[in-house]
Design a protein around this nucleic acid. Structure first.
Lengths: 229, 229
DNA sequence: GTCTATAATGGGATAGAC
DNA sequence: GTCTATCCCATTATAGAC
């Protein structure tokens, strides 16, 4: 954020003692960054605001000056994750491109999120797994509409005979599950692959396999109408 | 211990007052059942053993008679989940059947687990998401070998030209992710589908879509060698 | 094997000085 | 906006009577 060039030329950061020039927003963002990681690693109840504060280099009481309470911090973390996720999602709604290319881009974008923001993905996943008790309304307001739009695109493609008549909703569930698992279940994958963590190469292979599966299913009857199972 | 029956035939359950005839094993199993649900709904730290005890109809102190501490209860829950999961997994290693049929059965079995044991699936998922801190060694000992066997089967099929040369490891990751998501992310799916919870019919559609995708990808070049993308 | 009582700790949150 | 001090409560776990 602060590394962005803004319109006005920032009049020299006025560096006090050391890096004390942090304004409210910068500090909130530091806290949030640590909170995402810790909520992902320890769960909501398993994360103490004292540890978040310490990780961000401030005191617990000071953290409570920037966020009124733990729940507010948690909700802010979820908001940031969802903002980022929505901002990165490539739209399927582009008539100038073929379904295959749009789906490829969609899968690529989702996998990139898993690779670059694994903690955010995990916090969101745990919130949903435990029943979306605090975030259900936000999901309904911000995620469901986006999904409905994507599904409408699928239905348009099917009606136009551009793809096979596969249930769009469950197809999207499948794409979400496959791509998200490379963030959420990476610990198990790393155990299986016998390495510390997933590599860039693992994500490239994942992309190939997932794209292969989705396109094979979606283009099946289009290329091969007579021999459908 | 004194409630254990010895080698001699149990002489009628001797039903005291109400259902007080519960022996050690029965009570441990009651506790475990409640613990799976509560760990899934609230996470490890979010679940108090007092609530688990109350749900099982006993006192907290009594629970601690049956399980030495909270961590032991949690590990026992994970063990039970994994036992159940492994017992249900249909083997891919059966030369008398076609790959397509074996994969269909595999996907069906995984989806059935998600439908019948959603809480177990969620507890396991959260353990993995938070880094598999307590269960990494068990995963390495019990899950990885099973997966390696399945991958060997894929490689045999590929070598025999029975299926397309798709990366078996990531194919398994994909199948796991898609099937497990119907337990782990069912809260989000229910929001999207605008109902209280997933129905049997949702799982049937899911099965169709997932089987479609996997078989389309796996049989692609086999049926359609010349026009591969 | 179940109960009462209690130790011991940690964590969320507030008050008020500076 | 940051600090010291403190309150209050929930929770894990143990001791010991019955």
């Amino acid at each position: 954020m602060n590394s962005d060039m803004n319109a006005e030329p920032a009049p020299a950061p006025a560096p006090e003692k050391f890096s004390r020039a942090k304004n409210r927003d910068q500090l909130r963002s530091d806290i949030t960054e640590q909170a995402v990681r810790l909520f992902a690693e320890c769960g909501y109840e398993g994360t103490s605001i004292a540890l978040v504060a310490e990780s961000a280099g401030i005191s617990k009481q000071n953290l409570l000056y920037y966020f009124p309470n733990k729940l507010a911090l948690y909700q802010h973390v979820l908001d940031e994750v969802l903002d980022d996720w929505l901002a990165r999602m490539s739209a399927l709604d582009d008539d100038s491109q073929e379904p295959a290319d749009l789906l490829r881009a969609y899968i690529k974008a989702k996998l990139r999120f898993s690779r670059e923001k694994p903690w955010g993905s995990r916090v969101y996943a745990m919130e949903v797994i435990t029943g979306a008790r605090v975030y259900a309304s936000a999901i309904k307001k911000r995620v469901v509409p986006v999904l409905r739009q994507d599904i409408a695109v699928f239905e348009k493609w099917i009606a136009a005979g551009k793809i096979a008549p596969i249930d769009p909703m469950h197809m999207m569930f499948a794409i979400w599950a496959m791509t998200q698992s490379y963030a959420d279940f990476s610990a198990q994958m790393a155990l299986v692959l016998n390495r510390k963590q997933l590599t860039r190469r693992d994500f490239d292979v994942a992309e190939t396999v997932i794209v292969d599966m989705v396109l094979a299913a979606v283009l099946k009857t289009v290329k091969d109408e007579s021999t459908e199972v």
